[in-house]
Simulated scan of single mutants.
Amino acid sequence: MVASDLDGTIIRADGTISPRTIEAFKHARESGMHIVFVTGRPVRWLEPVRAAFGHLGTVICSNGAVLYDLETERLLSAETIEPELLIETRRIILHAEPSATFAAETTRGLHLGSGFADSAETSRIQTFDALDLRSESLREEGVVKFLAKSRTRNADDFMAAVAADLDHLVSVTHSAFDVSLLEMAHVDVNKSVALAAYAAGLGIDPGEVVAFGDMPNDLQMLAWAGHGYAMASGHASALDAAAYRAPGVEDDGVACILEGILARNGHVPEPG
């Protein structure tokens, strides 16, 4: 099995996936390997994957909270957070970071709190609801990821300020290079938990999994996989967690590693 993060791993800074990477994944699938993309992105942000690969593989979204079948465009499962826990989570975060702003991803869309997105971001998002943690609609839709943004601390410092007080309520991580954004899910959810369950369902053990990632939300997945590769361009914590290192995303690092694996197993693509 190949399990790959998206942003900063195969999606480059300009938002594209290179032709070489696309070909490497297609050859891996043709060789008989299962392909699963494991991302912090919600289902509504999978268009780059569709554009590059069509309906190839399965996607674990929202840092492990959602399992989505890209081949049939069907939600398979979702782990949600009770709104009461979100209210307490928000209280704890505001105590440490009074200017924090919030948003929530549900199984159906995005709910934005006041001040979370500026006007330019709001216009790009287009479709969203106002965030009300006490609303019945939020409970009915099911929150799969709760977001908190700081404009006064970097992401590592923001997480350090609140993580210990939140660990009994939600799982906490971050994955954005350019914004201080905490990503929270059900307390038992992370990428490795979802990936392990998915692999077990296919009869695949960790030693048969090669995984790629670059940020703190990839740590558990990189440690769990028998062959965990951190991108050379990634966060220091990812580089520390992984047993192996791949070249950076701009250097087609995932493609480099996959091509080597395929060649060693005798699956050399035909010219052209």
Rank of each mutant, 00 (worst) to 15 (best):
S171V: 02
D188T: 15
D252E: 09
E84Y: 10
T173H: 04
E140W: 00
G201N: 05
S123K: 07
V210F: 08
A263Y: 04
L110T: 11
I92M: 09
R151V: 15
V193I: 12
T80F: 09
S192M: 09
D167E: 11
T80N: 06
F25A: 05
C256R: 07
A199W: 02
G109R: 00
R124N: 10
D69E: 08
H235Y: 06
P98F: 11
A194S: 04
L195A: 02
A96C: 11
E183I: 02
E73W: 05
S137W: 00
T127D: 04
Y198V: 01
S180I: 06
L86Y: 03
A197T: 12
E23W: 03
S171E: 04
E259L: 01
M215T: 13
V38P: 15
A148V: 09
L195R: 01
G64E: 09
L219W: 06
E208Y: 00
D132M: 11
P48L: 00
L67H: 11
P83G: 03
A211P: 11
A196M: 13
A176Y: 15
G8V: 04
R151T: 15
I92K: 13
D240L: 12
T80A: 12
E250S: 10
D188S: 15
M221Y: 00
F37D: 12
A241E: 10
M33H: 13
P269A: 05
F177V: 14
L195V: 09
R139L: 14
P206Q: 06
M221T: 02
V162N: 02
A164T: 00
S233G: 09
V143Y: 00
D156K: 10
V249Y: 13
V254P: 02
D5S: 07
M159V: 14
L147W: 02
D5L: 10
T39R: 04
L94P: 06
